[in-house]
Amino acid sequence: MFELIAPTTRLHAAWLEAHEEWGPGQHEDGFGLGPSDDVDSPDGFADWVAMLAAQSGPEARETGRGCTYRWIVERDLVHGGIAFRHGPNDFVLQYGHIGYGIRPSSRRRGLATWALTRMLDEARALGLDQVLLVCEAANIASARTIEHSGGTFDALGDTEHGAVRRYSIKL
């Protein structure tokens, strides 16, 4: 049975296994991982998890600058991550309210759609009436996930990382 859980140091080894499966330079949306984050050492991983928790906290939510991170897990296997960015800030306007990533060996099982549905419930609970989602223009699987979840195609656009599709989902 799949669960969405808050990031935890208990799954350090399992998270590293998922991270390694993506390989160097691969895109891992939903984890909130920055280029300078130390996730290999136990102390660095604990610091990173604490930073994610702080971004998900009530103070961050109240400012509209927070981000709720969840990992998609089954028992002690990390399948992916999903992030819900709370506010209407520049990052959200460029990359969307919700970003997700599923490790390659776990794809094509409906996990992204399952996780996205649950994060849309969280967006409703915060009072949002619409969310923006953005995916790479060539990522047909992600576009289908968004459309399956009620996404309406708005436009093609560009980011510093390339061409993107922009969608909105009315809640």
Rank of each mutant, 00 (worst) to 15 (best):
Y100E: 08
A83H: 10
P104Y: 07
Y167N: 09
H97F: 05
S142E: 06
E160N: 06
A115T: 02
I140L: 14
R108P: 06
Y95W: 15
R65M: 09
Y69T: 07
R107L: 02
A18S: 14
Y167H: 11
A138C: 05
R103P: 00
G150K: 14
H19Q: 12
P104N: 05
Y167M: 09
P35C: 06
I5C: 05
L33K: 04
G64L: 05
K170H: 11
F91K: 11
D158T: 03
L171Y: 08
H79E: 00
R70G: 12
W114S: 00
L93T: 10
V73G: 05
D158E: 13
H86M: 06
L133F: 12
D38R: 02
T117I: 02
G44Q: 14
F45D: 02
T63S: 15
Q55E: 15
V131F: 12
L128V: 02
T117W: 04
E62Q: 13
L120Y: 05
S105I: 01
H19R: 10
R61K: 13
N89E: 11
I82A: 00
L4W: 09
D90C: 06
P58I: 10
G110E: 04
A112Q: 06
A137W: 11
W114Y: 08
R85C: 09
N139W: 13
L126P: 02
W22K: 00
G64R: 03
D90T: 14
Y69M: 12
A6T: 10
F91R: 14
T113C: 03
E3F: 11
V49M: 09
D29R: 04
F153Y: 14
G127W: 15
A83G: 06
D40K: 11
R103D: 00
P7K: 04
A141V: 01
A53W: 05
Q26N: 11
A115M: 01
I5V: 15
G99D: 08
V73Y: 03
T68M: 09
E59H: 13
L11W: 07
C67G: 04
R85A: 10
N139V: 11
F31I: 02
L11Q: 01
V131N: 05
L171E: 01
D47P: 02
L120R: 03
P58S: 14
Y100I: 02
W114Q: 01
W114A: 00
L126Q: 15
S149Q: 13
L132R: 15
G34R: 15
F153I: 03
E136S: 13
L128I: 02
